[in-house]
Design a protein around this nucleic acid. Sequence first.
DNA 1: TCGGAAACGTTACTTTATACCACCGGGCCG
DNA 2: CGGCCCGGTGGTATAAAGTAACGTTTCCGA
Lengths: 167, 167
Amino acid sequence: MTEAQAKPNGPMPSAQMERKLAKAVERAQQAFMEKNLRFTQLRQDVFAEIAATHASIGAYDILARLAEKGTRLAPISVYRAIDALLEAGVIHRLESKNAFFACRRIEHRTGRRPIFLACENCNGVQEVDSDGIFETIDRLSAAASFQPRVKFVEVSGLCEACRPGKD
Amino acid sequence: MTEAQAKPNGPMPSAQMERKLAKAVERAQQAFMEKNLRFTQLRQDVFAEIAATHASIGAYDILARLAEKGTRLAPISVYRAIDALLEAGVIHRLESKNAFFACRRIEHRTGRRPIFLACENCNGVQEVDSDGIFETIDRLSAAASFQPRVKFVEVSGLCEACRPGKD
DNA sequence: TCGGAAACGTTACTTTATACCACCGGGCCG
DNA sequence: CGGCCCGGTGGTATAAAGTAACGTTTCCGA
């Protein structure tokens, strides 16, 4: 599965899309600056590709899309950019799919954590507020004398647009 | 990382270990029978290898250990056995590590779902009751018009035995 | 006992991810 | 000013995880 993926949203004027993308890139740049990380050309290119998708996308899909645009890279280069983007918090990793998506919720970087709802059909990802789930996890961990470091809460299923009986 | 992994528990008399393993295999067999699935030799071998670990283990590690014992298999064979074991509910998959571990809580097969606490040092996994987390996920999904199919909650960190300052 | 489904074997391959080493460019220290 | 360190990049190779396709065997029920 290297190509072809249903769009999570309906059609949108390309000009508007581009403006949105530019804004997202700008916000990413902001995030990098705030963390004293460098928003290099490579990182910007990779981020733009992820953000343009509006869904989760695998590292090798990013690679392929950049290649189509003339930027031929080794996998390792993409992964390095991804690592930096993850560190800056501008993308998230979807563990259950080995894929990545652009974070659209600023507040994640200021304390609140979301859970991920990933559509199996269109690959779109919603980030919704966790409503105490992470606090519960902390409590359960403590009760088990377990020291948590990274917590994953992911749901795989069908988004509203992809539900059967809604053509 | 194909070899060498710290033991999650202290030393235990090998005879006792073997008895425990035999019991686990027996319970697995039970689970297969109840679901009208076949507990074949291959599945039993793979299950025994996973259960003997008392921790999470990757498919290729299982492969290597079976090979050491003279059972040389293709990866696909191991994966097929794993699929059957997952279906029977006698093992779980740890999404964040691409690894598997034996389920030690019968009650999971009767409705209750656990969350997983996975130690980064010894690879041991604790399954603790979710205390309403999955119900919260259902509620949040519904609020987002999302139809959940597979949910997972995993925590990566350090178990009590592996915490710093406890040699 | 025979026919179909489920399990298994074999080969090859895809997808995901990392190790290793060389190089380059910019900032900083002497 | 020169040398050096360091983060980022490029390239090659390879590890690790997972699957497709297809043929053969085994099991079980009609």
